[in-house]
Design a protein around this nucleic acid. Structure first.
Length: 493
RNA sequence: GCUCCCGUAGUGUAGUCCGGUCAAUCAUUCGGGCCUUUCGAGCCCGCCACCCGGGUUCAAAUCCCGGCGGGAGCACCA
């Protein structure tokens, strides 16, 4: 039955899942312009990759334009290194950025728009204390400054710009609807004053900073954004930003909000990581215990796996829990095809083998690609190999074991005794174990939980440095060094 | 408290707009089997889900109402 069907029809593999993302409604003609808008508080982490990749997928599908907009309008939360690290991370993710915009280059633009909002009576300078302002919003009452004329507002705004006010003394507020049923949407701050910390890029040249709702609205319009995809946490920001679009008669982009992602067991907070690096708790932004993009790369997680994962998850508004398991499954699909196989023996015990003088072992580098050749080991008398303590114990208990690609052994008179090399013993139920030759070198595998697995590994080609290998019966790991000791970072089983 | 969003198996997802072809898709996990010189990969089989209650209808995962549950926002952060 099945044989009658064209076999190529059955070859559809799971990695071929493509374009599961629904089409985007085309708003303005067919040239899509989209953006990713990270704040430069540190490098990108797993949470950022969803927005970066979702947007990238659509830009690629529609041959659109992709803008990386660095949102550095809060000088208190900027790591200058992030300006360099974020583009690196995006590049590693395979995201094609066509233009990079830095918001701190655009203060004058935000001031211009602020003036226009003032001129049309949709913005005012509020001199209230933050607590009073909060109370006004809660009670749906206008603050005393709300009815100032554009002239008065312009004058006050001038004074803001010329440092007449200190930090916290004045803000430019964008009008929405003071009676809006959603308290989160009522009049919101568009620009504020910060003069206590200099900006890493502009120093103290500007002390009036736009709030993200203003700068985002202005830039989304100025840059011609057609579609905006971002997390649900921005739902209320979208409503606020739409007020600015409406005030100024701008055509709005189409907004999409995906659900929140909680990533279990991941250290993501940049401030926590930054502190940890400072105190020496973490080795750096790429410490394998972290959830940063750099840490993923270091562990041998392929960017394509992260991409496939997010495509699979899609753009639904439901909140989800990130599944490491699924990510690892996607990664395994990719790395299993090419990863060289090596023996890493943890908790190693060096044992003597009697009853044979010489064995030549030819262990395939990859079980499915024999053309890649073998790892060849010649063992001569007195024969010794490393086994894991666990395997050795099982060997003693069962009285027999097969060492993969080497030979069969029996436990006779308290000695590991050569028992030929006939693999048919496996059919008789013999267990199979891996081993390492006596010329193995010390090896350490760093696991994401912070633990280190120590042992020995057979000599590994220098070409494997930086690549993902499979330590048989242990898991996939990315090789960092091969000499004088092997160090590797664990990806998954 | 107020506003908004959401609720399909352990996890993620398709289907929900335009009711029937959905005794519900795919992936992953888990269990079993085959194969096999990895406790890997591959192949095969299996388990597990439409939050609850009403209503409309010949027919509801899909529409309506009410509950319940989860999340977010209500910042001079992004």
């Amino acid at each position: 039955m099945v044989e009658d069907i064209d076999p190529t029809l059955l070859e559809k593999t799971k990695c071929e899942r493509k374009n599961v993302l629904p089409d985007l409604p085309m708003a303005k003609g067919n040239k899509v312009i989209m953006r990713v808008a990270p704040g430069p508080s540190g490098p990108l982490h797993l949470g950022h990759t969803r927005v970066a990749i979702l947007n990238d997928e659509y830009v690629k599908r529609y041959d659109g334009k992709y803008i990386n907009r660095i949102e550095d309008t809060n000088p208190e939360r900027i790591d200058p290194e992030a300006y360099r690290m974020i583009p690196e991370d995006l590049e590693w993710l395979g995201v094609d950025i066509h233009q990079t915009i830095i918001q701190s280059d655009r203060f004058e633009l935000y001031y211009d728009i602020a003036r226009r909002l003032i001129d049309i009576g949709q913005a005012y300078v509020c001199l209230c204390k933050p607590e009073d302002m909060r109370q006004c919003k809660e009670d749906s009452v206008a603050c005393p400054d709300r009815d100032q004329s554009p002239e008065e507002a312009n004058e006050l705004f001038d004074r803001m710009l010329s440092h007449d006010f200190g930090e916290g003394e004045a803000v430019l507020v964008i009008k929405t609807d003071i009676h809006h049923p959603n308290p989160a949407v009522r009049d919101f701050v568009g620009l504020r004053i910060i003069d206590s910390v200099p900006h890493p890029k502009t120093g103290s040249r500007y002390s009036v900073y736009p709030m993200m709702n203003l700068s985002v609205a202005v830039d989304d319009h100025e840059l011609g954004m057609t579609h905006v995809i971002r997390g649900k946490d921005h739902l209320n920001n979208t409503i606020r930003q739409e007020y600015i679009f409406n005030h100024l008669g701008w055509e709005k982009p189409l907004y999409f909000h995906y659900g929140l992602v909680s990533i279990p067991d991941a250290i993501l907070k940049t401030s926590t990581i930054g502190e940890g690096i400072h105190t020496g708790e973490f080795s750096g932004w790429d410490d394998v215990r972290l959830g940063t993009v750099r840490a993923m790369a270091r562990r041998g997680i392929q960017s394509e796996a992260i991409r496939n994962y997010w495509i699979d998850v899609g753009m639904k508004e439901v909140d989800i829990e990130f599944s490491w398991e699924n990510l690892y499954a996607f990664n395994k699909q990719i790395v299993d095809k090419t990863a060289s196989r090596y023996f890493f023996t943890w908790d190693p015990e060096l044992i003597d083998i009697v009853g044979v003088d010489r064995i030549e072992a030819h262990c395939p580098i990859h079980p499915d690609h024999h053309d890649l050749g073998c790892r060849d080991h010649t063992l001569t008398a007195p024969l010794k190999v490393y086994m894991t303590r666990e395997d050795l114990n099982e060997f003693k208990q069962r009285g027999s074991i097969r060492l993969k690609d080497l030979c069969n052994l029996r436990w006779d008179d308290g000695k590991a005794t050569y028992a030929g090399n006939d693999i048919s013993v496996l059919k008789e139920g013999w267990k199979i174990a891996h081993w390492s030759p006596p010329n193995s070198i010390p090896a350490k595998v760093f696991l994401p939980d912070g633990t280190i697995r120590k042992g020995v590994a057979e000599p590994i080609s220098i070409d494997e440095q930086g690549k993902v290998v499979q330590f048989e019966r242990f898991g996939f790991a990315r090789i960092e060094t091969v000499d004088p000791e092997v160090t590797a970072f664990f990806a998954h089983t």
